[in-house]
Design a protein around this nucleic acid. Structure first.
Length: 288
DNA sequence: CTTGGGTCCTGTGCGC
DNA sequence: TGCGCACAGGACCCAA
């Protein structure tokens, strides 16, 4: 799925088209995504003005003028796709083709007062949407219990060390645990660990001192680099504008099993291993 | 409490 | 070409 850099890129793409605009038409094409959509979902959204679009972890949070927040999670395959008003600018079929989309998976389609549409397309349907009062967000089942934002200055070596203290699981699994730190998924966990020179199998609780400092720096660097590149486009992911991110070309280890380790002077070979049913890519020679 | 495994769903790419 | 299987960017839920 979209990890933090992809969700943040989507957020930035949606802001100019949605913030300040009224949702004049809301089409809900199925009763549920990963979870059932809330009662009267489309009716409660229709006529509302979007005031801000924020992000917490991998959740997009669109605040509305009635005090509610539209929560969106993209799951593994979810996309938010912007489409300009049609003015003889081609057929819908051509639009789908150009965006490598299948309209069969457009589950929610929003139209704004200036004629733009945003379609939530999600073949695997691991994504979710909910509508919650702004004041109740912190207590929301899926928000409550989330760890710190990795790009927050408060997330530093001391904070990470504290979060990992006593953890018996692998550092790779801990980084992907949203209760420890949010926004990091399989790709960026692998990439951050490589940059930090830490083995994905290392016990989380043993990441301390200099290692914790290196890991925090690596996490922030890789996430910032990926955001600057518009995220990583593998199969499904695109920016809301339809553009492809290009950070996938900068992966140092992810999906590069058998290739030479890119670290200067290392000379090792990238290996794949399976942890918790997820592929991990790392260099056994320079990650300890 | 923590930890690991199964699970939801569809699409794609690979080996045969 | 076709078929079956492994695997895919997430994270909830439950058993141990």
């Amino acid at each position: 799925m979209p990890e933090l850099p992809e969700v943040e890129t989507v957020r930035r793409g949606l802001v100019p088209r949605l913030v300040g605009h009224v949702l004049t038409r809301v089409e809900q094409r199925r009763p549920d995504l990963r979870f059932p959509l809330p009662e009267a979902f489309a009716r409660r959204l229709t006529g509302r003005r979007v005031t801000t679009i924020g992000r917490r972890a991998k959740y997009l949070l669109a605040e509305l003028d009635d005090g509610n927040v539209l929560m969106v999670h993209l799951g593994m395959s979810g996309r938010m796709v912007l489409e300009a008003p049609r003015g003889g600018a081609g057929t819908l079929g051509e639009f789908y083709h150009a965006h490598d989309l299948n309209g069969a998976h457009d589950h929610v389609v929003l139209t704004t007062d200036d004629g733009w549409t945003v379609r939530f397309n999600d073949p695997r349907r691991f994504g979710m949407m909910d509508l919650v009062p702004a004041g109740g967000l912190a207590a929301h089942k899926l928000i409550r219990g989330l760890g710190p934002e990795p790009l927050d200055p408060a997330f530093d070596a001391a904070a990470l060390e504290r979060l990992l203290q006593g953890k018996k699981t692998s550092i790779k699994a801990a980084l992907m645990d949203q209760r420890v730190v949010v926004g990091i998924g399989n790709i960026y966990a692998c990439e951050a660990l490589h940059r930090a020179g830490i083995s994905p199998r290392r016990l989380a609780g043993t990441v301390r001192n200099e290692r914790a400092a290196r890991l925090v720096a690596a996490i922030k660097a890789v996430l910032n680099d990926a955001i600057a590149a518009g995220g990583s486009s593998l199969r499904d992911y695109r920016q809301a504008t339809g553009e492809l991110g290009y950070f996938q070309h900068r992966f140092r280890v992810y999906d590069r099993a058998g290739e030479r380790c890119p670290r200067r002077g290392c000379g090792g070979t990238v290996k794949r291993l399976v942890q918790g049913a997820r592929s991990t890519f790392y260099c056994p020679a320079c990650q300890r």
